[in-house]
Amino acid sequence: MNVPADLKYTKTHEWVKFDGDVATIGITDYAQSELGDIVYVDLPEPGRVLNQGDSFGTVESVKTVSDVYAPVSGEVAEVNGELEASSELMNTDPYGRGWLVKIRFEGTPSELMDAEAYKESLKG
């Protein structure tokens, strides 16, 4: 299972990449492999304000649907428009072209795991 060392992770299998005041968010390799072929993503409008832990969208495979949760608080700055036509990017490139949203975040996010801790949590 691919768990890049430079990212932060949540218990609900989102990853976060910090870049200045912008956090890019996606779902992990583990999450995409559990879901199987992803066929549809429902994402928020840019401008929506989220609190850490809010569900901001859903990711659907053929037979399951999962909520995705904001790992940070802030305003949605950008969503990945490419996923509308190519949701499979979340399967093929979960940490790259399969990203979901960018959030202009505020405050210090709590309870995020580093790569080692996330790997550990997958074992349990």
Partner: peptide
């Protein structure tokens, strides 16, 4: 579009 349906959602 089975994810709309009661047995999944």
């Amino acid at each position: 579009l089975r994810t709309r349906e009661q047995d999944i959602r």
